[in-house]
């Protein structure tokens, strides 16, 4: 039997991060399998209602440290270490995202705990948890067990789905935590500043990847329109970046970025391995290419052999309609 504590990150307006909610949902599921309880920890000025509402996702209890600032890891390490130790909690679970890594790592040191990162799945066995994570460019999955408790599990982005399973509201318990001397040595000057320029394609849920099959630079507009309709971003192959059709910051592949979005829509991309290694972990791969022998058709989830110039505009319209309606 093991209790699981999940860190729930929120923004300055009190909205909880999707990955945190996913982690709570996952914790609830696992807790029921281990016979323990799932709880959440929040810091900063979180209203009673907002905290209790985490019960919707399966948290039976929410620990709240009002005096602890949100957004920087080390004060939260102090909070979680105390909660874990005081309550004999077996595992700390984090949804994908930078803070999860920093807090999880700090807890590793503080509690002398084992940590697994980039976790894609967690399973329960004999009241204990085993974390699964991909290695070697996703060519193998390792099962990692914990020698002692507590164990720290840091999920990959989008690894845990949000599920409203809970009975209703969670019990909110306020905790007072003395912050470590060094936890107050970092101060947030500006938090979460949006900058117009390059969308970080590594964080996008949906990507439309454009390749040479687009034909010319101007045709990237087709990709942009399609991405827009899906609420995603545009990525590119080495060949088109080489040709100057799209910026290097969007290049995916062996010498570019590695991404694992929920949907990768490859248009006019042959699927050479130099590109494949950068996007093969995408949850869903849809390919449109006029060459039926293109390698991409060997590893996509849905492939359309056809003229992207004909298909893409119609697809964009259809998606807009579907969403609007």
């Amino acid at each position: 039997m093991a209790d699981i504590l999940v860190y729930a990150l929120h923004d300055d307006e009190g909205n909880f991060n999707k990955n945190s909610l996913g982690a709570i949902s996952e914790a609830a599921k696992l807790a029921s399998e281990t016979g323990g309880a799932a709880s959440a920890v929040v810091v900063g000025d979180v209203s009673d209602d907002a905290a209790a509402a985490l019960g919707k996702y399966g948290a039976t209890k929410v620990y709240r440290a009002k005096a602890c600032p949100e957004g920087l890891a080390q004060p939260i390490v102090d909070v979680m270490a105390k909660v874990i130790t005081d309550n004999g909690i077996g595992y700390a679970l984090f949804g994908g995202g930078l803070l999860g890594f920093e807090i999880g790592a700090g807890l590793t040191a503080r509690l002398g705990a084992g940590v697994t990162m980039e976790v894609t799945a967690v399973k329960a066995a004999d009241g204990k948890l085993v974390a699964e994570r991909p290695v070697l460019q996703d060519s193998a999955i390792v099962d990692v067990g914990y020698v002692s408790e507590p164990g720290i599990i840091i999920g990959r982005l989008n690894a845990f789905d949000v599920a409203e399973s809970g009975a209703g509201t969670a019990e909110v318990e306020d905790v007072e935590v003395e912050l470590s001397e060094w936890s107050t040595k970092a101060t947030m000057v500006t938090r979460g500043e949006a900058r117009g320029e390059d969308v970080n394609i590594e964080d996008a849920d949906i990507l439309v990847g454009g390749g040479r099959g687009l034909g010319e630079k101007d045709n990237f507009k087709l990709a942009e329109d399609l991405a827009g309709s899906l609420g995603g971003a545009v990525a590119a192959t080495r060949a088109v970046v080489d040709a100057g059709w799209y910026p290097y910051s969007t290049q995916i592949g062996q010498t570019g970025k590695t991404v694992a979005p929920k949907l990768y829509l490859a248009v006019g991309i042959s699927g050479a391995i130099q590109h494949k290694v950068g996007m093969q972990s995408s949850e869903n791969i849809l390919a449109i290419n006029k060459d039926q022998n293109a390698p991409i058709f060997e590893f996509c989830d849905l492939g359309v052999v056809g003229d992207l110039h004909k298909i893409m505009p119609k697809l964009t319209e259809a998606i807009k309609a579907k969403k609007g309606g």
């Binding site: 080495r238 970046v241 290049q251 062996q254 010498t255 391995i273 130099q274």
Partner: peptide, 21 residues
């Protein structure tokens, strides 16, 4: 066919070539 026979680009990858673009 990517089992017995292979194309050039995939082969270049296997040579360990990761020269910057």
């Amino acid at each position: 066919d990517n089992e017995l026979t292979f194309d050039k680009l995939g082969s270049v990858f296997l040579s360990g070539n990761a020269t910057r673009d």
